[in-house]
């Protein structure tokens, strides 16, 4: 039941929808729901570090709102006058803070995304599009650490014959580091050549090759997709019925809020909170099973 054990496409759909909505909606209620969900989800996934990060974002958001109101002067309720004579208005302040909150929400969801969307899921998704691309990606991702390790090995070997980076006067040190760099480049090229030959001998360039993946698309994923689409349809119905419409310029005017509007708010909240709820439910079930099964 845990969200990160679902199929990667599910994670992709969820995060795309969430971040797109977070950046698109302007309406205060939707923005608030987005912000609170992002806050809760990031704390659930990342713990105390996320809490500190989120709290640091708040003053940045406030600063942005003030900057926005200082340089944009639309609106009919003036609060203060600028040095060159333009008015600082309430509408500009409110709009600036709404924009700040939407960006903060998107940032928090992106931190959740990094936690849920691990490298192997990215590689898997790329592999669905093209196996060659995913293989290429996995090779690229490995290069950095491998080169670092090999560079250290070269340095230790050279130190053994007195030609390390830290030995000799300044000119000798420069010369030694250049030599080590050249050794490293040669090694990289040779290892690429070796990998290519070994991949070719394993049938890498043959047609009809598929990539192995550990993810299965089962009924649990299917029901989640149906639930997400139901929520999406509900939210888009709300957009079509102007429930998310608000105009800030030059007067703050909202649509009527009726009892039925709360149904749309609920749909948005469900869409955003579903993974967190599933994660919590999954973990609780796991704990319960662990406790009841003495080992």
């Amino acid at each position: 039941m845990r969200f990160d054990s679902y199929h990667p496409t599910i994670n992709l759909i969820y995060f795309t929808a969430t971040i797109a909505f977070a950046l698109w909606f302007n309406h205060p209620v939707f923005v608030l729901i987005g912000y609170l969900s992002a806050f809760a989800y990031s704390i659930k996934l990342n713990g105390l570090k996320a809490l500190i990060f989120d709290l640091c974002l708040i003053p940045l958001g406030a600063a942005y709102a003030l900057w926005y109101a200082y340089y944009n002067h639309f609106g009919i309720t003036p609060v203060h006058q600028n040095i060159i004579g333009n008015q600082i208005t309430v509408e500009a302040l409110v709009y600036g803070s709404v924009r700040a909150i939407t960006v903060i929400t998107a940032i928090m969801f992106v931190t959740c995304l990094f936690k849920v969307f691990t490298t192997d899921k990215v590689v898997y998704l790329f592999g669905k599009i093209s196996p060659k691309l995913s293989l290429f990606l996995s090779i690229i991702l490995r290069i950095g650490p491998r080169i670092k390790v090999e560079g250290r090995r070269i340095n230790v070997a050279q130190m053994g014959i007195g030609r390390g980076i830290g030995q000799g006067n300044i000119f000798q040190r420069i010369w030694h580091s250049l030599r080590e760099l050249s050794i490293l480049i040669t090694w990289t090229l040779e290892s690429f050549l070796e990998s290519t030959r070994s991949m070719q001998s394993r049938g890498y360039s043959l047609k009809g090759r598929t990539a192995f993946s550990i993810y299965r698309f089962d009924n649990r994923d299917r029901s989640f997709v149906i639930a997400i689409f139901a929520c999406l349809v509900w939210i888009f119905a709300g957009v079509a019925l102007n429930q998310t419409a608000i105009s800030y310029d030059p007067q703050i005017l909202m649509n009527r809020i009726t009892p039925v509007s709360f149904v749309f708010y609920l749909a948005y909240a469900i869409l955003l909170l579903l993974p967190m709820i599933l994660q919590i439910m999954g973990e609780k079930k796991f704990e319960r099973l662990q406790r009841s099964c003495p080992v």
Binding site: A240, N242, T258
Partner: peptide, 13 residues
Amino acid sequence: GIVNVERGGVGYR
């Protein structure tokens, strides 16, 4: 300007 109509419990433009 902005005019809303409420029908079936939902208000829209």
